[in-house]
């Protein structure tokens, strides 16, 4: 049962949080980048979710649970993040809100999601090529 309840419950909390906080609206994200009509909603939401996540983790696991996963910062990571950010800044949508947007059944929601899936497949194929073959 918990194999369904935990991921479904998480999805409802994550999605419900995004919807309630108006983060599932592209205009909210675009407002973050708009110097003429700046909207700090995303920053307030982000800071709140970070505080809650860290607070619950420490409450459950104890104060020593704060670990810092290692891993090198490489060009692939930065290039990928840069490309993702460009798409995010153009449309105001990232993967979570893109999934939530499917509920609208609006043509442009479906288009964004379909193109995102295509991009993911292309990205996954590129990731499977050994690094030295890509030069």
């Amino acid at each position: 049962m918990s194999r369904v309840a935990i991921p479904l419950g998480s999805g409802l909390l994550l999605g419900g949080g995004l919807v309630l906080g108006r983060l599932a609206r592209a205009t909210t994200i675009l407002g973050l980048f708009d110097l003429d009509a700046f909207d700090p909603t995303m920053l307030v939401f982000w800071a709140t979710s970070l505080v809650v996540l860290v607070g619950i983790r420490r409450g459950v696991r104890g104060p020593s649970s704060s670990c810092s996963p290692r891993g090198r910062v490489d060009r692939r990571l930065l290039a990928g993040a840069a490309i993702f950010g460009a798409g995010w800044g153009i449309a105001g949508l990232c993967p979570g809100p893109a999934v939530i947007g499917l509920a609208t059944l609006a043509p442009r929601s479906l288009l964004f999601f379909a193109m995102m899936a295509v991009g993911m497949e292309l990205g996954a194929r590129r990731s499977r090529v050994p690094a030295r073959e890509t030069g």
Partner: peptide
């Protein structure tokens, strides 16, 4: 509560979706 995709025109929406999908796999 949920926007029907993006205020952008559909060609930009399509390009943005591709960039988001590709970039998040690479990064």
């Amino acid at each position: 509560a949920v926007s029907a995709a993006s205020p952008r025109a559909w060609p930009l929406v399509a390009i943005a979706g591709l960039l988001v999908g590709f970039g998040t796999r690479i990064g």
